[in-house]
């Protein structure tokens, strides 16, 4: 491939007491890739995500981030500096009451100079479209605004990898689209994205989909290939969205979408 490997899982297993959460997972994610990790509840998605930034260490096997072993305490700072991790509940992720102070928390922890912190906070808030909220009280924000601020908090450390653990699970459709729009832009800017999601609709944004089942990698495929075979997704307990089902059925009947949005194609067909 020639691209640098950002994340490498080599035979990783993880157990919580007697329950195996990950079983012999081997996975490589190249720098700049946008990968969606899918799976039913308890399939091991979040456990996998927590291994990426060394919040969990493997019981067996090895996780490497840009070649750095996550089990090496000496590399912990470098690993965490290069990874932004966003969880689903934004309110519980805030350390400070003022937006700007919270976004500055990460850069402060890695010992950035004051001027550099100011620039990083400004850039991160600008990226998520929340520059006007810098002096606001974080507890007074809406769920969508909070999630965008939490995202800014991870971006302020200028990470090369972004791990998003169901970031839209608690958001309304409008804010969901906003957050996903930012994620898409970040992916286009070259950041490696790992998006944990239940939604096939969201996973369509990625170039590659990894499906987890019972702690194992059940499917590892390009997005196009997987969405062309919806029965494979249904097999691991996930529903294909109605739109995708219609699109698949239309294509099966020989109606090509030619890359147009489904709604537009249906409109055209009805008009005819």
């Amino acid at each position: 491939m020639g691209e640098q490997i950002a994340i490498r899982f080599s035979g990783v297993s993880h157990s919580f007491k007697e329950r195996m959460a990950l079983r012999n997972v081997s996975l490589e994610i190249a720098e700049g890739e946008f990968v969606a990790i899918m799976g039913a509840n308890g399939s091991g998605k979040s456990t996998l995500a927590k291994h990426i930034n060394a919040l969990l260490l493997p019981s067996e096997g090895k996780v490497e981030i840009f070649g750095m072993d996550t089990s090496s305490p000496k590399r912990l700072l470098d690993i965490r500096k290069s990874i932004g991790y966003l969880q689903q509940n934004p309110q519980s992720q805030f350390v400070a009451t003022i937006v700007e102070d919270d976004v500055a928390f990460g850069p402060e922890n890695i010992g950035m100079e004051r001027e550099a912190i100011g620039a990083a906070v400004h850039d991160a808030l600008e990226t998520v479209g929340m520059l006007d909220f810098a002096q606001r009280d974080s507890s007074q924000l809406s769920g969508g605004e909070m999630q965008r601020i939490a995202l800014a908090g991870t971006l302020a450390m200028r990470p090369r990898i972004l791990v998003l653990d169901e970031p839209t699970a608690m958001l309304d459709p409008l804010n969901r689209q906003r957050v996903l729009g930012i994620v898409r832009d970040l992916s286009q800017s070259g950041i490696t994205i790992v998006l944990i999601t239940h939604s096939v609709e969201e996973a369509r944004l990625a170039n590659r989909i990894v499906c987890m089942s019972g702690g194992e990698v059940a499917i590892d495929s390009s997005t196009e290939e997987l969405l062309a075979a919806p029965e494979r997704i249904a097999g691991i307990g996930l529903d294909l969205p109605f739109g995708a089902q219609v699109a698949h059925e239309l294509e099966r009947l020989g109606v090509s979408l030619d890359g147009h949005p489904l709604e537009q194609k249906i409109g055209e067909l009805l008009w005819r």
Partner: peptide
């Protein structure tokens, strides 16, 4: 969230 934002990783806090 704090750990992933490098709190307690050994760097001197500014």
């Amino acid at each position: 969230s704090m750990e992933s934002r490098c709190y307690g990783t050994g760097a001197e806090r500014t």
